[in-house]
Design a protein around this nucleic acid. Structure first.
Lengths: 188, 188, 188, 188
DNA sequence: TATGAATGAGGCTTCATTCAT
DNA sequence: TATGAATGAAGCCTCATTCAT
């Protein structure tokens, strides 16, 4: 039923928190629901996280960190501008695609929370830095602004993924190709 | 302090709601605060809006609508691809710049509601459509995808504006120029 | 639409109040509903009744008074013990029968209200007195206790009327006959 | 002050609720008052009852059930028509007499709810059934109508008990004797 | 460590009543 | 007299957090 070791328990809490915060949002998610779905008692969560906000922030930070680390791994094994751009694009869009069923608010400023804003800032900083480094290696000037822009292009397609119920893998690949092409050569 | 006519009162409520929801987020904004700052009684809000959620949604919808209408106006009086792109970019970024002091959550999926998600969807649809129409008139293919992408590039710079306390008018203009150039000619 | 003279207006208010208080009960009936259904403004009610409680009490008192006055009229034109008992019984039960569709709480201690309790007391006093006087004229001893008992027998049948959806005029007449017979000769 | 076990706590809540709802009525009784007088926190009540209405209904149902069960017990150990009628009468009237200080609304349709009406219906059904069974055993015809009538006679005396501050034990016994005699032999 | 019953601050909302017109 | 927009006191209920076991 419930996870037994310290880490397993934290993982279980994170997993449920991710799902519930993602689907319902911060305020509408109850600590008691998280506890119940994680198979532990309400009080137990407080052994690991001092408050609801801390749990939310910790979970979000971990998610952000993972996201960037995975990106770094993938970029490490690749050369070629086009390929690398595609990797960034695919990683970004796949994230939303995979989690579509229960993602709604992640990577977005929440209803609340100075803490999350800080986490989001750090995330953007790290994410941008990695993409910028990659761009720099590939000889692109104004790497940071370009990195942000590329991320922006990708992020806006999140709307399509989340709102369009018939959005398919093929659509995803099409968006990737489109984003990379636009980024490299402009709209003309 | 308080406005007298029906519409003035609604405007007053909207104005305060916009500011408070924007700075504090939905859950952390109290109806009593809105009432107090609007110079009316708590109960009075309920003469115009049936619930906190309805007020929030109505206010957001109005904001979205205004944003798009203003854009339409400005595009109407302009020709030239470069100029029009600059107008879109400036409108988008200026919005955040002007409201920097109390904007945080707008144009973002909230912690709550189905209603706002629907409003956001409509907004994105309208905003994208206007930009896409303009692009089409200027001979750009895949106008919709391009429109979204351009919006994405602009929207990501919102982060810079909101997070960077020293962000200046000059920075703003630089971002505008950068976004337009990238969009037109790519990163190279 | 709305009644124009002073008395017509009061009558209109009474009529609506009777219906709404009767169907919904005191707390669940809003002054605004009464005003609306009476075709007048909320504030207007306060020109005639100083509070919700006063309206309720006044309306109830009037209803009680009417009930007893009608009974007095009918008894006045009759002689004969059996006939008179039947008149009381028919008057009592017909009242509930006629108002079945919107009677629920009348003649009963309310959820609230010292005022109504007082009105109810007066009503029971007057109602009992009239029945007792009649019994006395007919030579019945312990007229007051007997009067109350007879009223009690009748009042319990109210349950049948209110709860039994198929309760008919024939059932009503049967109850009348039964009540009178029991009262006169006992259960044997 | 506060009870410790689950059941003790519920009993404590019931006891206070019975007293307060009985004296003040439903609407005028505050959940916070019940909590305070029960020596627990407001929120604790909601661990056992999902709403004020539910508490009220549950308490009333329990009271009804008890009333009938006690009657059944007492009838079980008695034979003789006269004695049994006296038992019913004494049980009914003693109930009001004992609880005089804080009974006002029980056994009466409340200002509110469908729920209570249903409970009242069930109560009347069960109460009537027990009395009717007893009457049948004693050879009385039309047992149900007779049972209701007897209950009605008794119930009307509730008024005397509640309204007459000098109502004594002797008065009570007199009413019992009167009710039984009337019921058996009629008014003559 | 783990539990979950208990807490109680706090917010949304209702609605009787007022009063300027 | 009549209106109805405005008021604001008051109460139900939620839920993050605590703590005795």
């Amino acid at each position: 039923m419930s996870a037994s070791t310290h880490n397993e328990k934290i993982e279980a809490i994170f997993a449920v928190a991710f799902r519930l915060f993602g689907t319902r949002g911060f305020s509408e998610t109850k600590m008691s629901d998280i506890a119940e779905e994680a198979g532990i008692a309400k009080g137990t969560i407080y052994l690991y996280f001092s408050s609801k906000e801390e749990l939310f922030t910790a979970m979000t930070k971990r998610e952000f960190t993972r996201f960037v680390e995975q990106l770094i791994d993938m970029l490490m094994n690749t050369t070629g501008f086009q390929e690398r751009l595609e990797i960034v694009a695919r990683h970004h869009l796949s994230y939303y695609f995979k989690l579509k069923q229960y993602t709604r608010t992640f990577f977005h400023a929440q209803d609340n929370d100075r803490f999350l804003m800080e986490a989001l800032r750090t995330f953007m900083f790290n994410y941008t830095r990695e993409v910028a480094m990659m761009l720099e290696q590939c000889g692109v000037e104004h790497a940071e602004l370009h990195a942000k822009s590329f991320i922006g292009i990708l992020d806006v397609f999140k709307m399509d993924i989340l709102f369009d119920n018939s959005f398919s893998i093929e659509d995803l690949e099409q968006r990737i190709a489109f984003a990379v092409k636009l980024f490299r050569f402009g709209c003309q």
